[in-house]
Every structure is written in structure tokens, then in C-alpha cells.
């Protein structure tokens, strides 16, 4: 397998594949963080998670079009604006969905799964009606294109570095929110014991709605970040959903650290395998391994020790 490559070539291969693995890792982390909050903390299966990401991507596309009309200097900084807009729009839709659908189904998780799948179909068709069936891409400011040359054989693209930066920033933000803010404390309290949380004066319904909205908002930001590395079509969201759920479940549903660790493991395995096998076989092998491990160890990598 390795015979035909020299040692330095191998080192470069591993470095390059490792780096593309890191970009994949960031993508997985971004996808999975929102879901880790919604599924991991609330136990709600949101099959429309991919569509919330695509919503963020379309919002970014609209913002970039709007900024295209403005002076050139402003166009360079449209991205942060687009990300905030994506967070707010996806979060608002999330709050509405929680109010209209999810809150009536908390005691029936399998039905939530079907209802949110229906929602995802409706959103897909909505995107197709509004934006057309073709994929759309955003125009990037010049400073975000090109790549950095690290050595003769190793080059890294700038947009990849940006996606990684965003993933790190959002992970830290979510970690701080969950473990330092009073909202995070309330969320964790409600998850651990809903009745007692209500008894000590936490508005559990409001907490649920906010949690769901924040999870969806993060999905929107993730979608916004994805526009830097690929184009967006109405049904792109469905491609992500299996990967995302596997990342969250593999990490141990209630653990943010577990989510990040599992995103790292899966992405690295997949991108290194991709070099030696065809892309589809790399994916099949990775997913099969993950499913196999999950069958043997259903609680995932990092299980919370809870007495139920």
C-alpha cells in the first residue's frame, strides 16, 4: 500500500490529507454542535437540521448579493454580517417550529422525527421554489481566496483556515454558554430533572424554546460558513443529516467534548482513507466502523455518568 511512495512524499501526503481532514473536522463540528444541543440536551430528533443549515447558506447568499450593490470596501466585510443574519433568521425559524410543532411532541420522540422530516421536505421544496433547483454560490471577497504555501509540497487554502477558525470560535462560545451562563445552567437543570427544575422556578418551556432556537441558529451559522467551501442547493441539507447524527451519537449524546472528539476521529479516518481508497469506499468503511462501534458501545465515546 505504501510501497510506491518515498518517505518525504508520505509525510506530505499525511500532512495534506491531515489538513483536509481538519477542514472536514471543522465542517463536522459546525454541523454537529447545533444538533448536540438539540438532540444531546433536549433529546429531540430534528431531521430538518440540514435544512436549517441550508437556510443559513441562502441567507449568506442574499446578504452577499445585497452587499454587491454597495461600495467595494464594504463588500470585503460582508461575511460577519451574513453570519449574524444567518444566526438570527435560522434561530427565529427554530423558535417558531418549536412553538408550532416540537413542544406538542416532547413525549413522543419517534413522532417528532417524522414530523421534522415532513418539515424538511416542505423547506426543501420552498427553497426550490424561491431560489430555483440549481445550486447557488456566493462571490467571495478577494482576501478570502487563494492559499498559503507552507513548504514545497504542502499548501493550505485560506477559506479552509477560516472555516476552522469559525468552528473553534463557535465551539468555545457554546462551551462557555453551556457551562458558564445562567441559560446554560438552566438548560442542564431542565435536562437532568424537568420537574425539579420547574419547581425551583425555572421557566422550562421558555428554556426549551430558547435551546431549540439557539441550536437552529448555530446550524444557520454553520450553513453560512459552508458557503466558503462549496455551493448550496435546495436538497444539500439531506446529505449532511446522517453524518451529523452519527457524529453526535458517536461522541456520546450529552457531551460537547465527546461531539468534538468524535468529529475529529471520524473526519481524520475518512480523509486519510480517502487517499488510498475511492471516496465512496472510504466513507463506507468509516461509517461501518462507527456503526459497528455504536452497536458494541451504544453510549458513545464520552458517556455522562447519570443515575436514571
Amino acid at each position: 500500500m505504501f510501497g510506491e511512495y518515498s518517505l518525504s512524499e508520505l509525510a506530505s501526503i499525511f500532512a495534506m490529507q491531515g489538513f483536509s481532514g481538519l477542514i472536514l473536522f471543522s465542517v463536522f463540528v459546525l454541523m454537529a454542535l447545533g444538533l448536540a444541543i438539540i438532540y444531546g440536551q433536549m433529546g429531540v430528533i430534528n431531521m430538518a437540521h440540514g435544512e436549517f443549515m441550508i437556510l443559513g447558506a441562502y441567507v449568506t447568499y442574499l446578504v452577499s448579493r445585497a452587499f454587491g450593490e454597495l461600495p467595494h470596501a464594504l463588500f470585503n466585510v460582508y461575511f460577519p454580517v451574513a453570519m449574524v443574519a444567518a444566526f438570527l433568521v435560522a434561530g427565529a425559524l427554530g423558535a417558531f417550529v418549536e412553538w408550532a410543532l416540537i413542544r406538542r411532541l416532547y413525549r413522543r420522540p419517534l413522532d417528532t422525527l417524522l414530523a421534522t422530516w415532513g418539515l424538511s421536505l416542505i423547506l426543501q421544496q420552498l427553497y426550490r421554489t424561491i431560489f430555483g433547483a440549481r445550486e447557488v454560490g456566493v462571490t467571495m471577497p478577494e482576501w478570502m481566496m487563494g492559499s498559503l504555501k507552507l513548504s514545497d509540497t504542502i499548501e493550505v487554502p485560506i477559506n479552509g483556515i477560516l472555516v476552522m477558525g469559525i468552528a473553534v470560535a463557535i465551539s468555545i462560545a457554546v462551551g462557555v454558554m453551556m457551562h458558564r451562563s445562567s441559560w446554560g445552567r438552566q438548560v442542564r437543570a431542565v435536562v437532568q430533572n424537568r420537574t425539579m427544575a420547574g419547581a425551583v422556578g425555572i421557566d422550562t418551556e421558555r428554556t426549551d424554546r430558547l435551546t431549540f432556537a439557539v441550536g437552529c441558529g448555530i446550524a444557520g451559522v454553520a450553513g453560512s460558513a459552508f458557503t466558503m467551501i462549496g455551493s448550496t442547493g435546495p436538497s444539500s441539507g439531506q446529505l449532511y443529516i446522517v453524518d451529523t447524527f452519527l457524529v453526535v451519537v458517536f461522541g456520546g449524546a450529552a457531551s460537547l467534548l465527546g461531539t468534538i472528539a468524535s468529529a475529529f476521529t471520524i473526519s481524520q479516518a475518512q480523509s486519510i482513507l480517502e487517499f488510498f481508497l475511492s471516496g465512496s469506499m472510504a466513507k463506507v468503511l468509516t461509517l461501518l466502523t462507527v456503526v459497528g462501534i455504536l452497536m458494541l458501545r451504544p453510549q458513545g465515546l464520552f458517556a455522562l455518568k447519570l443515575r436514571k
Binding site: G43, I45, P109, L110, L113, V242, F245, L246, V249, S278, G279, S280, M281, K283, V284, L287, L288, V290, V291, L294, M295, P298
Partner: peptide, 24 residues
């Protein structure tokens, strides 16, 4: 293991089967 968890795993198996059939 059952319920939602089982649903996710079986869905992943469906995804794997499709990728495998298309890839090979």
C-alpha cells in the same frame, strides 16, 4: 437500545447501503 437511537442507526445503515451500491 431502542427508540430514537435505533432509528438513527438503521438510517445510517440505509445510507451506507446506498453509498456502497453506488460506489461498487
Amino acid at each position: 437500545v431502542g427508540g430514537v437511537y435505533f432509528a438513527i442507526i438503521t438510517q445510517a445503515i440505509a445510507a451506507i447501503a446506498t453509498i456502497l451500491i453506488i460506489g461498487q
